[in-house]
Design a protein around this nucleic acid. Structure first.
Lengths: 115, 115
DNA sequence: GGGAAGTGCAACACTGAGGTTGCACTTCCG
DNA sequence: CGGAAGTGCAACCTCAGTGTTGCACTTCCC
């Protein structure tokens, strides 16, 4: 068990569509890298790299089964991350409420920076 | 309010150290891009780009205050993401438990794919 | 008015993430 | 044995993300 990945590292591991495709499959049934490559529109080597990232993040387990290696999605790290994010989100909002309750200056114009 | 970002998109927005630096600051006090640039070791333009990403993900709010734009960290989206991740994590683990309880074959060798 | 502070826009550079292909090696099994 | 299936390793390519600099424009305020 290597050092627990940092928060940005965990999120980065989850910040890729292909990796979610893999995780979704592995959440339904355990599969090998080759089996995943047959199902997903990427090469086996690409899948292996993603599995390495996911393994490093503690999101999948690898289990050798004779000639192949079977992977499975692991929920515990995801739950741990969820708890941490929830805690942080609550902290932000409580601070915001505290500021608003004592400042509450009018005439504020909201800006939409989204394209 | 644009379309809600997908799960990988949300995670990708949170998968960068500099953005967490920004969010941490904005979670403590509202600041402008220039103010953040004075505090963090990156240029203002880099900060602006990050703020665009964060705004797109609904993680910060922008409020024009005269000549400057003040940003604040917003927890609601983070909480929503946390709930979704928690739900998914639980689903994975229940499936794993179900499989293990009826397969339970011995002689399994665990492989460590981490470097 | 005019300078200081803040933002907006554009062009550019660099690195790393994601993906591919090719080949060698191990393992299963007819 | 020998082929099929699976994995391991390495070189390579491409592009988007992160960051920079420079300049024009708006806003505040002495």
């Amino acid at each position: 068990m290597t050092a627990t990945p940092t928060l940005p590292e965990m999120c980065a591991a989850l910040g890729d569509q292909t990796r979610w495709d893999i995780l979704t499959r592995l959440g339904q049934e355990t599969m090998s890298a080759s089996a995943l490559a047959r199902v997903l529109p990427v090469s086996r080597q690409a899948i292996v790299k993603h599995l390495d990232v996911l393994s490093e993040a503690g999101l999948v387990t690898a289990e050798r089964r004779g000639r192949e290696i079977v992977y499975a999605a692991l929920g515990s790290r995801l739950n741990a991350l969820a708890h941490e994010l929830d805690r942080i989100g609550n902290a932000w909002d409580t601070r915001l409420r505290a500021l608003k309750s004592l400042a509450e200056s009018p005439g504020e114009e909201h800006v939409d920076r989204r394209s």
